[in-house]
Design a binder for these strands. Structure first.
Length: 849
RNA sequence: GCGGAAGUGGUGAAAUGGCAAACACACUAGCCUUAGGAGCUAGCGCCGCAAGGCUUGCGGGUUCAAGUCCCGCCUUCCGCACCA
């Protein structure tokens, strides 16, 4: 009775036992020194925000990474597999408001809880290199980088329209606004405010960030495409139109003369300068400086412009700028085309964006869809200046928007094609001093000021005498004070802490005030993975030699939601550090993997929907191994995963079968002495063959295909096969040495996916040391090979029967076997076999008439 | 509108152009009993008593052979979207 009880798989007993042992061995998951001589492998999963609870998305993310890390350890690599906490951020302040708990305390207690969850899940992280971004020993380096970037002109301050989330009570970077809403509050419409802000000059690297994508073939195409779109490079020309002299003669509503001086310029950006002879109006964004000027003494215009602005704002709030109905107002002013002196009207239109290009366009309705729509509505002339290259073969109706044509009605440029015309027109602009070639990017500089408390203080001082003065390095870190009153009223909480604000100016020694905004938390996560390599360095952010050993990251794993946020900031930051001489790599990660979402009942898990599954609950009921293994088994890692609790129970039952199988024969296997026979046969061969096929499949899959769901399935098949021979095994039909090989390898194969069970069974089999460091089993191709194959025989492509032939049979042998088959004979009797296709080892197809 | 991914049993899914549905879940029947969220055996795409036929969103095509490649369309999801 006691013996039978031992055969029960009970993760609630096994898992805590190993947790304790692993916790007592802090070196278990530590990387070797960089002098180890082993090949290095840096596997990284995105660090979590310490919200208080791991969710299933985390469990999936870390199950993938941990399986990979464990596999690479077993393959003999020097593996770096670290973890940390993205510990600054707004939820801590919200919690403070709600529970009256200081953000620091709230965050640290969440970290403690989540670290316990990681421990229960059996994740193999080296906690000795843990990074917590809200600690001064980390964020001081944010400040240090900020100062270095300031010195290099990569940090600047400007007043501009910025995104303001009323819910967060702070500004957001462009990347953090999704369809006009806050990335953290999908229901909150982001407002525009004029504020003075600190910016990182990410645009200085726009071109390089774009070009780098072409070389990142270890990244998903989806992520690369999204980044390309975000950077939005566009090649074109900037051209100055002149305000026409006639404008001076115009009159205001009250009959007084207009005061706009003639001869001034309006700069437009266009990608189609070859169509400039077709420009029949100039369109300005409502917020264009010239519009403001014109409206300042024209009440009628001012009113209409504010209406256009309102329409733009509404469209932005609706998250559908593209659907706005085009409206415009003529300003009563005119501009002169510098190429032909033509005088065209200046309008203000709601479809022109102030923050792209120059906020002004030349409108060419003959060759642009939008301009055509607008011109038709307001009866602005439409003129053809591009004729199709082959007028007979092509549709010639306007608007004609392709580049593939020749210029007409364009004076001396008539007859030229797109490329040549563009080149000549650009040359003329440069010569005439009214324009030049220009590359425009959609990406904007990264606004990093946040009017919040729980973040890295910006290391700058405002002195009445000396203006902006950087905090000297030796005064770093600028410590974020405790005991700050958090309110939701907006404005930086730090501004209400006199001890923090009031300082002496480092330059003149006079009274000065500290910057009270803090940094965007995406700053923290832009470089944390470098800190892991040298987490306790108090002289530098990290040691270059160590970072250069580990970088680039071999495999980075995380959710696709960071495709253009974190992942683009990280690529920027890596280049900045490279240019500071700190590292050699251009890109942070060689391979990036975006896992699919975890969903339930067809929807993303959310509190609102009440479909959240708690990892703790799963671990309590089925154990960590079953929870993790299900996360890998239920879908390929890149696809969305539908969480079905019955599936977890199924995996748990499988682990029980594997456990009992190994336990049943552990003693026999352990007592085995001697090697397995060089040429096993019968049942031994059958089982060893299945084993080696399984090893080959899983080993190959880890190389990059990563279909861990089929790897788990393959292990299940292996267990089913061995289990199916239970009676013969019990009868001793298979030598103990073979049993030992089967069971040992099975445990090793399980180790990346079910670390607790593998550790337990490794122990039972008398394995030496940690299973984690045991060598990955090699696949023996001789044993994996089948000696007889079942070949499908088709008649006209449809399956007719199966024939057995020895492996490696010549096509003629296979053909003969197929033709000799009774079923084939009867089905082809009286018909002509026109052709026989034999694909050796695969199939035979008879073409029969 | 543009770009991308996907569409296969009741469910999650599998399949270098070569036997569609591996492995699981659910379900059905039976066995076992130490009654456990257990274990074991068998069945389980659709039609049909069977022989056999049919089946990978829809329609074409390429091929000896198509879930897989090509063309057109439909649906779902994701990203981008007056970007001049």
């Amino acid at each position: 009775m006691a013996e039978e009880k031992e055969l029960r798989y009970d993760p609630a007993v096994i898992e805590p036992k190993w947790q304790e042992r692993w916790a007592a061995d802090p070196k278990l998951y530590a990387a070797d020194p960089i002098t180890s001589g082993k090949p290095k492998y840096y596997v990284l999963e995105m660090l979590p925000y310490p919200s208080g609870q791991l969710h299933m998305g985390h469990v999936r993310n870390y199950s993938i990474g941990d399986a990979l890390a464990r596999h690479m350890w077993m393959r003999g690599y020097n593996v770096l597999h670290p973890m940390g906490w993205d510990a600054f951020g707004l939820p801590a302040e919200n919690a403070a408001l709600k529970n009256n708990t200081p953000p620091r305390q709230w965050t640290l207690s969440n970290i403690a809880g989540m670290k316990r969850q990681f421990g229960r899940l059996g994740m193999g992280f080296d906690w000795a290199t843990e990074v917590t971004t809200c600690f001064p020993d980390y964020y001081r380096w944010n400040q240090w980088f900020f100062l270095r970037m300031y010195e290099r002109g990569l940090v600047y301050r400007k007043k501009s329209k910025v995104n303001w989330c009323p819910e967060c009570a702070t500004v957001l970077a462009n990347e953090q606004v999704i369809d006009g809403r806050c990335w953290r509050h999908e229901d909150t419409i982001v407002e525009q405010r004029d504020l003075e802000q600190w910016f990182f000059r990410i645009t200085a690297y726009a071109q390089e960030l774009l070009e780098g994508l072409d070389k990142l073939d270890g990244w998903p195409e989806k992520v690369r495409t999204m980044q390309r779109n975000w950077i939005g490079r566009s090649e074109g020309t900037e051209v100055d139109f002149f305000l026409a002299e006639d404008a001076v003669n115009a009159q205001n509503d009250d009959g007084s003369p207009k005061v706009i001086p003639a001869g001034r310029r309006i700069r437009v950006f266009t990608t189609r300068v070859d169509t400039i002879f077709g420009a029949t109006s100039i369109q300005l964004a409502p917020e264009h400086a010239l519009v403001t000027e014109m409206a300042s003494n024209d009440a009628g215009l001012a009113k209409q412009v504010s209406q256009l602005l309102e329409e733009q704002k509404k469209a932005r709030e609706a998250g559908d700028v593209g659907a706005i109905e085009k409206h415009g107002v003529p300003t009563g002013h005119f501009a002169v085309n510098p190429y032909n002196g033509e005088r065209i009207p200046i309008w203000v239109a709601n479809y022109i964006l102030a923050d792209y290009g120059t906020g002004a366009i030349m409108s060419v309705p003959g060759h642009d869809e939008r301009d055509f729509e607008f011109a038709t509505k307001y009866a602005i002339p439409v003129r053809r200046v591009i004729a199709p290259a082959n007028p007979v073969a092509e549709e010639t109706a306007l608007p004609f928007t392709t580049e593939d044509g020749v210029l007409v009605n364009s004076g001396e440029y008539n007859g030229l094609g797109y490329a040549e015309a563009t080149r000549r027109l650009q040359e003329a602009a440069v010569r005439g001093g009214f324009g030049e070639p220009k590359i425009t990017f959609r990406i904007k500089d990264w606004g990093v000021s946040r009017q919040r408390y729980w973040g890295t203080p910006i290391p700058m001082i405002h002195c009445e005498r000396d203006g902006i003065v950087p905090v000297p390095d030796e005064q770093l870190p600028v410590i974020l004070p405790d005991n700050v009153e958090i309110t939701q009223t907006g404005g930086s909480p730090l501004a209400r802490v006199p001890e923090f604000v009031n300082v002496t100016c480092p330059k003149c020694g006079g009274p000065a005030k500290r910057e009270t905004d803090t940094m965007d938390t995406f700053v923290d996560s832009s470089w944390y993975f470098y800190r892991y390599t040298d987490a306790h360095n108090d002289k530098a952010a990290f040691d270059s030699a160590i970072a250069n050993y580990w970088f680039p990251i071999d495999q980075y794993i995380g959710g696709v939601e960071h495709a253009i946020l974190h992942l683009i900031y990280s690529r920027f930051w890596t280049r900045v550090m490279r240019d500071l001489g700190m590292i050699k790599n251009d890109e942070p990660a060689e391979h990036q993997f975006s896992q699919g979402m975890v969903i339930k009942d067809g929807h993303k898990m959310s509190k609102n929907r009440g479909n959240v599954v708690s990892p703790d609950d799963m671990v309590n009921r089925y154990g960590a191994d079953a929870t993790r293994m299900y996360a890998l088994f239920a879908a390929p890692p890149d696809r969305d995963l539908d969480w079905q609790e019955d599936g977890v129970a199924g995996v748990s039952r499988f682990l029980g079968r594997a456990y009992r199988l190994v336990m049943r024969y552990a003693a026999t296997a352990r007592a085995a002495n001697g090697a397995i026979a060089p040429e096993p046969s019968g049942l031994s061969l059958k089982l060893l063959r299945k084993l080696h096929q399984t090893i080959a499949k899983i080993t190959q899959d880890f190389e990059g295909r990563w279909h861990f769901n089929t790897d788990v399935a393959a292990i299940m098949e292996l267990v089913n096969e061995i289990q199916g021979a239970d009676a013969q095994l019990a009868a001793g039909e298979v030598p103990a040495a073979v049993l030992r090989e089967l069971l040992t390898a099975l445990v090793l194969l399980l180790a990346p996916f079910a670390p607790y069970l593998a550790a337990e069974l490794w122990d039972e089999l008398g394995g030496e040391g940690a299973v984690l460091r045991a060598p990955w089993p090699p696949s023996n191709p001789n044993l994996a090979r089948e000696d007889e194959l079942e070949i499908p025989v088709q008649i006209n492509g449809k399956l007719a029967t199966l024939v057995r032939v020895p492996a490696g049979s010549a096509p003629s042998v296979i053909e003969a076997a197929a033709l000799a088959d009774e079923k084939i004979k009867s089905r082809t009797a009286g018909k002509t076999i026109a052709k026989v296709i034999v694909v050796p080892g695969k199939t035979v197809n008879l073409v029969v008439k």
